[in-house]
């Protein structure tokens, strides 16, 4: 295959395995019995996943993500919409970088 064809082969291979991961959980849960432990674990999965995404970023990413996380939660808790909270907290970080 030419280099160009190999690039497209790589793109399609990545796309295919990524799509398999997207639909895979749905089908996996079909063979896992419902109720009890699995049911309760599933209820806790969303929060646990987001915590897992965030904690290394907050711990190892320096001050910027930590400040941003705090600002986003505070602005959100104050009743602002998600759009305002996300871009407000990002703006806080951009402002600090401008000043420091």
């Amino acid at each position: 295959m030419s280099d160009d064809a190999l690039v497209w082969a790589a793109v399609l291979a990545m796309a295919f395995v990524t799509w398999l991961t997207r639909i895979g959980g749905f089908w996996l849960m079909r063979v896992v019995p419902d109720g009890g432990f699995i049911r309760r674990a599933l209820d806790h999965l969303p929060g646990a996943l987001v915590v897992a995404i965030l904690s290394p970023i907050a711990l190892e990413g320096g001050w910027a993500p930590t400040v941003c996380i705090a600002a986003a939660v505070l602005i959100g808790r104050a009743g602002a919409s998600a759009l305002v909270a996300v871009f407000g907290s990002v703006g806080v970080v951009a402002l600090i970088r401008l000043v420091v």
Binding site: I53, I57, G61, C68, A72, A85, V90
Partner: peptide, 11 residues
């Protein structure tokens, strides 16, 4: 920092 901001709100 858009990603951490967004996920913090979700959390």
């Amino acid at each position: 920092v858009i990603v951490p901001a967004f996920f913090a709100l979700t959390l």
